[in-house]
């Protein structure tokens, strides 16, 4: 199975590459569209600021490439900033338009909670996910499983659609969409490659879906 890690110069791709290699994927880190066309699935990583990321994607014509994946059957997984880019827009350093796959906006965590206490930002550490529904590719999720995953982010998706949010966490009283899904697009706000056994489980399930879609186009 060929996974294309979309390389647009943002963030460290080594850990995620290693996690996919452990799942016996062939991994290609590339920004070349001809190469990307040969892939079975895509990973959109990202660490850094939203406006820089969109600018780079657009310079490489990767923004249109990602949008047109909606007309294909090939899965794409956005991680952390990679998930945020799939939303309509972000308020990080001004207002920047995103890829518009998911409905919602990216904004900073509120600095005060409902009791007027200062909120520690970034939201960093292990937080359990609560699942509201299960996409097909996640069937067999055991309710008893520990669902802790590792988050590091200062911005989050808001005004989201209920049916697009598969699982969420709570931080400082705020609803944090953690795992989102729409058609062949998946987003994970946390880092599955750093989320211990449960992160590995989620990645393995996603990879299995890529295989399923490849074999049954």
């Amino acid at each position: 199975m060929k996974i294309g890690v979309i390389d647009y110069g943002m963030g460290n791709l080594y850990s995620v590459e290693q996690a996919l290699l452990r799942l016996e994927c062939e991994v290609f880190i590339t920004s070349d569209i001809n190469m990307l066309n040969q892939m079975d699935g895509y990973l959109l990583p990202g660490v850094g600021a939203f406006p820089d990321a969109m600018r780079r994607l657009s310079e490489l014509c990767l923004d249109d490439y990602i949008k047109q994946l909606a007309t294909t059957n090939k899965p794409l997984l956005g991680i952390c900033l990679g998930m945020q880019l799939l939303y309509e827009d972000s308020k990080e350093n001004g207002l920047t338009k995103g890829l518009g796959i998911f409905t919602g906006n990216i904004q900073k965590f509120d600095e005060l909670d409902s009791q007027q206490n200062r909120v520690r930002i970034p939201h960093m550490g292990w937080n359990p996910l609560s699942f509201t529904h299960q996409p097909e590719w996640l069937d067999g999720l055991d309710k008893e499983d520990s669902t802790h995953v590792y988050f590091v982010h200062s911005y989050l998706a808001q005004n989201t659609r209920q049916h697009e949010v598969v699982a969420s966490s709570t931080y400082a009283g705020q609803f944090v969409p953690g795992l989102v899904q729409k058609d062949n697009f998946t987003g994970m706000q946390f880092h599955p490659e750093k989320s211990g056994p449960f992160g590995k489980y989620l990645l393995a399930k996603w990879v299995k879906q890529v295989k399923g879609r490849r074999d049954q186009p």
Binding site: Y14, Y150, V152, K194, S195, G196, P197, G199
Partner: peptide, 11 residues
């Protein structure tokens, strides 16, 4: 560090 990043599933 490189080897650890290849083997570890935690930050």
């Amino acid at each position: 560090v490189r080897q650890s990043a290849a083997e570890l599933a935690i930050p």
